[in-house]
């Protein structure tokens, strides 16, 4: 069941009018309509931003197994909270923040795997130099470099650089002081840049 199937011409359509599909509507219009209760507008937002949220969740969790659940939970919360969103044009960043919170909730549940007090542990070197030389693209190298961070370093870095959160927000979400977040991010960033640039 595609969107276009359900928005086929209403009787009022003037012949030969431009296609009015919501698919091309700006985020602000879609967010306002969804806030007013239009599920079709919400569907366009889901299709437009869901894949990015899923990719973000996958990077946060270090795998895809929980990404779909995080995206689903995020959109269900988003539907309920859309009427409180002030500027519909910022809906993408707003959705990413909801996804951040949902991912962090799940990371907290993994307490046996990744106790938060391990945030400061020194990460193992990700790959041997011989292997690193073989990697094909920059993106793969970044992926490998990310794998070399501790989980908390990686999450902090994603929250900051991809999710756009402030140090205070990251500290709140990970239950650590903002000053600690800053140190964590400094180490993560330096390690990533150095691995990417082959300084070691």
């Amino acid at each position: 069941m595609s969107l276009s199937d359900r928005s086929v011409p209403r009787p009022l359509d003037p012949p030969g009018s431009l296609p009015r599909s919501l698919d091309n509507a700006p985020d602000g219009i879609l967010a306002s309509r969804a806030a007013d209760g239009d599920p079709r507008a919400f569907e366009v937002l889901v299709r437009r931003h869901g894949p990015l949220m899923r990719a973000y969740a996958t990077r946060m969790m270090g795998g895809t197994s929980e990404s779909d659940d995080i995206v689903q939970e995020s959109f269900i919360v988003a539907w309920e909270q859309l009427p409180t969103l002030k500027d519909g044009n910022s809906v993408r960043a707003w959705l990413m923040r909801i996804a951040s919170r949902k991912a962090i909730d799940r990371i907290r549940l993994r307490k046996n795997d990744e106790p938060l007090h391990d945030w400061d542990a020194e990460a193992p070197t990700s790959q041997s130099p011989a292997h690193r030389v073989e990697v094909a693209s920059q993106r793969e190298r970044l992926t490998q470099a990310l794998a070399g961070l501790t989980p908390t370093q990686r999450q902090s870095w994603l929250l900051r650089e991809v999710g756009g959160h402030s140090y205070e927000e990251i500290g709140e979400q990970l239950s650590i002081p903002p000053s600690t977040v800053r140190g964590l991010l400094a180490r993560a960033r330096r390690k990533l840049v150095e691995e990417m640039e082959g300084w070691r």
């Binding site: 889901v46 990015l52 899923r54 959109f75 993106r139 650089e161 991809v162």
Partner: peptide, 25 residues
Amino acid sequence: LTRELLADDVAAEPARDDGWVATIL
């Protein structure tokens, strides 16, 4: 590269059926 990371992840994702959208709706 960081900014492009997720966009590249999305582009590399194989096409999926609509089940995930239907579940949300």
